[in-house]
Simulated assay, not measured.
Amino acid sequence: MRTTTIILAGATALGIFATAASAQQNMTGTITKIDRLNGTISIQQTQSGTVGAGSGAIQEFKVTDTNKLEPFHAGDKVNFSASEGGSTKTITDLKKQ
């Protein structure tokens, strides 16, 4: 009984860790729109995988510090990380490629 409890607790902890690790993945994409007044940025993610794969859907992200958007423009290719809290996706890291 105790061994089963330990195994289940370990499996649960591993599942929680894997979810947290995937919550902030490094992604690449192209900026399609920047709204500096509302602190949002829209990015079309680059699809990973085989040659000839199309582009991903355009997603809008919140930016906590709008001053960080100054060097960026629509059309820039970027590497970024984002976190999701509730229904809001927030950029945590943004760099030009």
Rank of each mutant, 00 (worst) to 15 (best):
M1P: 06
M1Y: 05
M1I: 02
M1W: 01
R2D: 07
T3W: 05
T4Q: 10
L8M: 03
A9T: 11
A9P: 01
G10V: 06
T12L: 13
A13E: 03
A13S: 08
A13Y: 10
A13V: 05
L14I: 12
F17C: 05
A18P: 01
A18S: 11
A18F: 11
T19G: 06
A21R: 08
A21N: 10
S22T: 10
S22W: 02
A23G: 07
Q24I: 12
Q25T: 07
Q25H: 11
Q25M: 10
Q25K: 11
N26S: 15
N26D: 13
M27Y: 01
M27I: 04
M27P: 00
T28V: 15
G29T: 03
G29Q: 09
T30S: 14
T30L: 08
I31D: 00
I31H: 00
I31G: 00
I34Q: 00
D35G: 09
D35Y: 13
R36T: 15
R36C: 15
R36F: 13
L37G: 13
L37H: 10
N38C: 13
G39T: 12
G39S: 15
G39R: 08
I41L: 11
S42Q: 13
I43T: 00
Q44W: 02
Q44S: 03
Q45V: 12
Q45L: 11
Q45F: 11
Q45E: 08
T46W: 04
T46R: 03
Q47G: 08
S48N: 11
S48F: 15
G49K: 02
T50M: 10
T50N: 13
V51G: 14
G52N: 07
S55E: 08
S55W: 07
G56A: 10
A57Q: 15
E60Y: 14
E60P: 02
F61S: 02
K62N: 02
K62W: 03
V63Q: 01
T64Y: 09
D65W: 03
L69T: 03
L69S: 02
E70F: 13
P71K: 12
H73Q: 15
A74D: 14
K77R: 07
V78T: 06
F80C: 01
S81D: 04
S83P: 01
S83F: 01
S83V: 03
E84K: 08
G85R: 07
G86Y: 08
S87A: 15
S87V: 09
K89H: 03
T90M: 06
T90C: 09
I91D: 00
T92L: 14
L94C: 05
L94K: 00
Q97P: 04
